[in-house]
Each structure stands twice: as structure tokens, then as C-alpha cells.
Computed example of a mutant assay.
Amino acid sequence: MNKKDMAIILSVCTTLLVNTTYFSITEAKGTINRNDIEANYNPFSDEDIVDDSTLTMTERLAKIQNEQKEHKSAIENVQDGHLYIPKKTQLKVELVNAITSKTAQEGENVDIRLVDNLIVNGVVVIPKGTIGKAYVYKARSAGGFGRKGILMIAGKEFKTINNIVVPLKQGLTGEGNSDGGGVAVAAVISVIGGAFMKGTNIEYPAGTIFNVEVKENVDLQATPDNLNEIMNPNIIHGTEITINL
């Protein structure tokens, strides 16, 4: 093989490698539309991270004292005397429809169904079978060089019988398979050969069961005395409008 032929082959391989890398980046980025989820929020984080690095020592001490007072005097986000759904309550849910990393888009809405009743003080506040909302937090389709598909579904919200929004976090995570070391060897030997070695996508069938977590304390706007009445499913709950003619 002469130098001219080698130069042509090298040029083709370089172009293919650049194009493959480019498509990997653009596909991984996806279309971001987080449905009003706050910027930089990670629903799979175990704790809410607060940056207090800019506070002075006096401000930090005041912050700690205020937090201690709030903890002693009241439950966060809950009016005194009201019942509530505690933060980090685990809920078992299932996917209503199948979804795959091959076609999923970041920010896409996903329907979830509550598997068991959520009961507070002996009263059902969210019935089994209630449809809630989740969304695609991260999605990446499978690609060349053994790149495996990734799909993360985060819980967003349920509503109680009396229409109280229950914000959620955590959810379902998974990824396909890659060719591992074989791909790395193939990539060294042949850029063209490696590009045709595909990873696999991850697919969650309808009915896939997983857990979500209540993001924060949720005030049920009810007391122990009237919870049963407020959560009566036979009472119509919603926004009432009165029009006087």
C-alpha cells in the first residue's frame, strides 16, 4: 500500500470518528424541557444541597439557630394541628405505558400509577390506582462503539383526594449493555469496525414497578377530626366558581 492510499484511509477514519463523536454528544444532550422543574435540580439526590459558602460566621450561626427554633416550634411546611404526608415517604408505583431509551426525550411526561393506597391515620388520602406524573430526567439512545442506552424516570407528583399536590423525587434508572473491552480493542484496530459495534437500548415495559419518594412534607389541609370527611371520595373537590347574573 502506497502513501497516497494510506492517507486516503486515514482521512476516512478520522472523518468517521469525528462524526461519531459529534452525534454521541448531540444525542446525549437531547431536548431539555423539564416541565417547570427548577434549574440544576437532581431528583435522584438523597439530600437537598444548600450552598452557604458565602455566608459569614454570624450569618451561619443565625441560620442554625433559626433552623433549631423552627424544628422545635413547627413541622416544616405544615400548619399547626394539621395532618401531613412526611417527607421521604416511599410510594410504590408502576409505569402506565412502555418507554425505551431509543425514542425517549428528556423532559417527556410519563404517566405512573399508585400500586397501593396511601393511608394516613386510617384514612385513604391517595387511592390505589391513582394516576400521577413522572418525567424523563435523562435519556440517551444506544450507539456505535458499544455506547449503551440510558434512561432515568423521575417522579413528579400525585394529587390527594382533596386535590393537594404531593411533589415527588427519586424514580427508575437503568441502562443497556455495551460490548465492553471488545469494542475498545476493535476501536484501536479499526475505527470503521468499532463504529458498527452497537450498544443496546434499555426498555421499561408497561407495569414496571419502582419506588418514588415524597419530596417534602405535604400539609393535607385537614385535622385529625375532619380528615375522614375531607378525604371522602364521594365529595366533589376542585375549584369552585360562583357567577352572579
Rank of each mutant, 00 (worst) to 15 (best):
T173A: 05
G176D: 05
K133C: 07
Y84C: 12
I161F: 05
M231A: 14
D111W: 07
Q170A: 14
N97V: 02
S178M: 10
Y84I: 10
V166I: 08
N19T: 08
L172W: 03
V125W: 06
G193T: 11
N33E: 06
E203P: 04
N19I: 12
F23Y: 14
D52A: 09
T239A: 10
T200P: 08
N33P: 03
D51R: 02
K87E: 12
T14Y: 07
K148I: 01
G181D: 09
P233Y: 14
V214S: 13
K138P: 03
I119K: 08
E94C: 02
K148P: 06
Q90D: 05
L55R: 14
G199N: 01
V120H: 07
A206Y: 12
K169H: 03
N77Y: 15
V191M: 12
N211Y: 15
N226E: 04
T242I: 14
Q90P: 01
T26M: 11
A206W: 09
I189N: 13
E27C: 00
L168G: 00
K156R: 07
I126K: 04
V191E: 06
T242E: 12
D48L: 11
A139W: 03
E70R: 13
Q65T: 09
A195W: 09
S178V: 05
N66D: 13
L151R: 05
G30Y: 01
K198R: 13
M6A: 11
Y41V: 08
P233D: 13
S11R: 07
C13R: 00
G146T: 04
L16E: 14
G199V: 08
L55I: 01
Q221D: 15
N177E: 13
S53Y: 10
K69V: 07
N77T: 08
V191Q: 12
L61W: 07
A62D: 13
N234F: 11
R140I: 03
L91V: 01
E47R: 10
K148M: 08
I209M: 15
V183Q: 05
T100A: 02
G132A: 07
V191N: 10
G155C: 06
G180K: 03
I243A: 14
E76N: 14
P86R: 07
N19S: 12
E38D: 08
G107S: 04
Y41S: 02
I153S: 11
T21L: 15
V96P: 07
E59H: 04
N97C: 00
R60F: 12
Y41I: 02
R140W: 03
V166R: 08
Q170C: 05
V212E: 03
E240Q: 12
N35V: 10
G176N: 03
K169F: 07
A206H: 14
I37T: 00
I241K: 04
E27R: 01
S45Y: 08
A154G: 05
S11Q: 03
T31E: 14
G30R: 05
E47S: 11
I189R: 00
N162S: 02
L10R: 06
A154W: 09
A186D: 08
A28S: 01
V188D: 02
C13E: 14
T160K: 10
G176W: 00
I209W: 00
D225V: 03
A104G: 05
L245P: 09
N109I: 09
G122A: 04
K69Y: 12
N117S: 08
A7W: 01
A195R: 11
S53L: 06
D179L: 15
G181C: 06
F23P: 01
E216K: 13
T239L: 14
F210S: 03
N211Q: 15
V136K: 04
A186V: 09
